[in-house]
Design a protein around this nucleic acid. Structure first.
Lengths: 215, 215
DNA sequence: TAGATTGTTAATCGATTAACAATC
DNA sequence: TAGATTGTTAATCGATTAACAATC
């Protein structure tokens, strides 16, 4: 699977983007592509593409380039999107409900099997065919079904406590929307903190800059 | 505002995180903090903090550290979150509605003034006190209110076309949720592409890695 | 075979960390 | 004043880009 020992996070963060572009090429029935042409489409250097891919294997062929389908499937495997990690969601408020309905979990490597909330108005309702259960059921649910990933759509204040609890119940991967930086302490878990607010503030900064430059 | 000429994106992307941690310190009535202590809380080096902040000015004091409130306000200004850019949202499906209700735009530098969709079932309904209008009203609306930012919660296929149109109507900043890499062509606009799927795939990769390592 | 393009090494560039004089 | 901690320069580290021999 992997040629090099330690693959840098910079490389890993680019993989999904390759994956998307290759998927696009596939849908357009493009069978082969050179690093140069892909680099032009993606706005990065061909050198970087070749370096990145060679962390994982030799997927190309001199004089030919890369077979789109083959490369797509390799990145699929590298990312592990066929694993379908059993996943629970904590918090079925506005954001949780939107994430649950909007994301194509199956294609992204996850399998949503449980949704939990403490609000009596949503408990018992269904989302994507899944009944929303009260948080108190978490332990027994995890005991029975052994999910490995959790999506946190809960407020900042309860995030760390919930995280600790879930680790105890066997969760090792967290997709965290709670405006809180999870995972600074525990090196045995994997966390993707999604900070939508940060992204918006960065846009604000850059718009400001852009407007100054135009002036 | 700014000491150095060109500030790297790496630095900028860390600013909102400083902002959040400082906000937290404020709420806990902590008046001063040294780069060393902040570095321990944030899990980065003190050196990096001092370097980052010194891109913008000299906000600390030798032997004392940084005044939390002062630094918070400086970062506020740097990020431009007091600007309140007039903003429109395109697409009021699941995700759009959740974003509209969930984000605290005011605190993040934006002011949501219009929401647009083409689905007859949502047109006319209200979200956060704003009536959802049909896309055909976009031009006249922009002509009248001159928004500068747009949030795209629309499908991939229509993203580029919509973007081009909105540039024409005066939009310069895009917060893009459409699974499409906007802004590769036009250097006069500012784009924050939010790829939730990418984040999830990265989690998948890292969980896989984590499980291998434990074995 | 000749042309194209990879995989990989070397060179460059930029970002992070360390060190320390300046100074509160 | 003595201790603490900044701002800043220098050293290190890592990531990106360039170059090119290998080879399809």
């Amino acid at each position: 699977m992997q040629k090099r020992d330690k693959i840098s996070l910079s490389v890993i963060r680019r993989l999904p983007r390759y994956y998307r572009f290759l998927d696009d090429l596939r849908s357009n029935d493009i069978l082969r592509i050179s690093s140069r042409e892909l680099s032009e489409r993606m706005g990065i250097t061909a050198s970087q593409i070749r370096q990145d891919l060679n962390c994982f294997g030799e997927f190309g062929q001199q004089g030919y380039g890369y077979n789109v389908d083959l490369l797509y499937n390799e990145i699929c495997k590298i990312l592990g999107v066929e694993k379908g990690y059993k996943t629970i969601m904590i918090g079925a408020g506005n954001l949780g409900r939107a994430i649950a309905t909007h994301m194509n979990f199956g294609r992204l490597g996850f399998n949503l099997i449980g949704i939990f909330d403490n609000n009596e108005y949503v408990i018992g309702k269904k989302l994507m065919g899944i009944e929303i259960l009260p948080n108190e059921n978490l332990e027994s649910f995890c005991g029975e079904y052994n999910p490995t990933a959790a999506i946190l759509c809960i407020p900042k204040d309860s995030a760390q406590e919930m995280c600790d609890q879930l680790i105890h119940f066997g969760i090792i991967g967290f997709w965290n929307f709670s405006h809180y930086d999870l995972g600074l302490l525990n090196p045995n878990i994997v966390v993707e903190n999604v900070h939508l607010g940060d992204s918006l503030m960065i846009l604000s900064y850059r718009m400001q800059k852009q407007m100054e430059d135009v002036k």
